[in-house]
Computed example of a mutant assay.
Amino acid sequence: MLKKSFLLCLFVFILSIGCNKNETLYKVVGVKDGDTLVLLSPDNQSITVRLSEIDCPEKSQAFGQAAKQFTSDLCFGKRVKLTGNQHDRYGRTVGQVELENGVNVNYEIVKQGYAWQYRAYSKNMELASLEQHARESHLGLWQDANPTPPWNFRKEAKTQRVEKKVKKAKRPYKKRRSRKQRDTVAFEI
């Protein structure tokens, strides 16, 4: 009897903790690009969040502005739940963002065709399925016959920057003549 009472009390305790879960809600106060948000915590701390497992086109890339606009329309000014506390090399929090109505922002962006599943960081079969459906339906960036994944776009841009630096470094350097040298040359003529 004592064991049953204990188990019943334990069950009620666990249930009450689960029901009274006071999740922290953040307000979306900025959208930097399709997969990067700025959230404001209840104590007015600004947090930059990189949406995990997805990669949107860069702003300067085809559909980059459209991805940013879609993300903004979806969640700007709304209260959201943040899941995840890892940080990337830029100091951004990496995580999943969910609207109060339960819509997962990360998944919705892929579902509507404004992001790739970032396979280097995700093996999520649901995201893969959402991306495949968006491809087949020609949604968002999948309207393009051969869209360039953002990781390839960034790599190409970096290669071009390096090549430009190398080319600039190889230019012959002309030494300017001093005033005395210029005057001497002018006098000799």
Results as ranks from 00 to 15, higher is better:
V94E: 03
E156S: 11
N22T: 12
C19K: 10
T48M: 07
I14N: 13
T24D: 03
N85D: 04
D144Y: 12
E126P: 08
L10H: 04
F70I: 08
K123M: 07
E126K: 15
E58C: 00
K165N: 08
W151K: 04
A67Y: 00
L2A: 11
H138Y: 11
Y173H: 11
V97M: 01
T48E: 12
V97T: 01
K165V: 05
W142I: 03
E136Y: 09
T83Q: 09
E53W: 10
A157T: 05
N124E: 07
E53G: 11
F63D: 00
G95Y: 03
L141E: 02
L99R: 05
T48C: 04
E100N: 05
K4P: 06
R176I: 11
G113R: 08
E188D: 09
L8P: 01
Y118R: 09
G30H: 00
V94W: 03
P147L: 01
N152E: 01
P172D: 03
P147T: 00
S72A: 09
Q96K: 11
L15H: 06
F76D: 04
D144R: 07
Y90D: 06
S46A: 15
L25D: 04
I14Q: 13
V94L: 03
Q65R: 11
Y114R: 04
I47K: 09
V162T: 15
V49Q: 01
K21F: 15
K175H: 11
D43E: 11
S60G: 05
N20T: 05
F13I: 07
S52I: 15
Q112R: 11
K175L: 15
L8I: 11
F76L: 09
D43Y: 10
A157D: 03
T24A: 01
K123T: 14
L130V: 06
Y118S: 10
V38P: 01
S52F: 10
A169K: 06
F13G: 05
V162C: 03
I189C: 13
G113Q: 13
R161K: 11
K3W: 14
V185I: 10
N101S: 05
D35W: 07
V103M: 03
P42W: 05
Y118W: 12
S72N: 07
N124P: 04
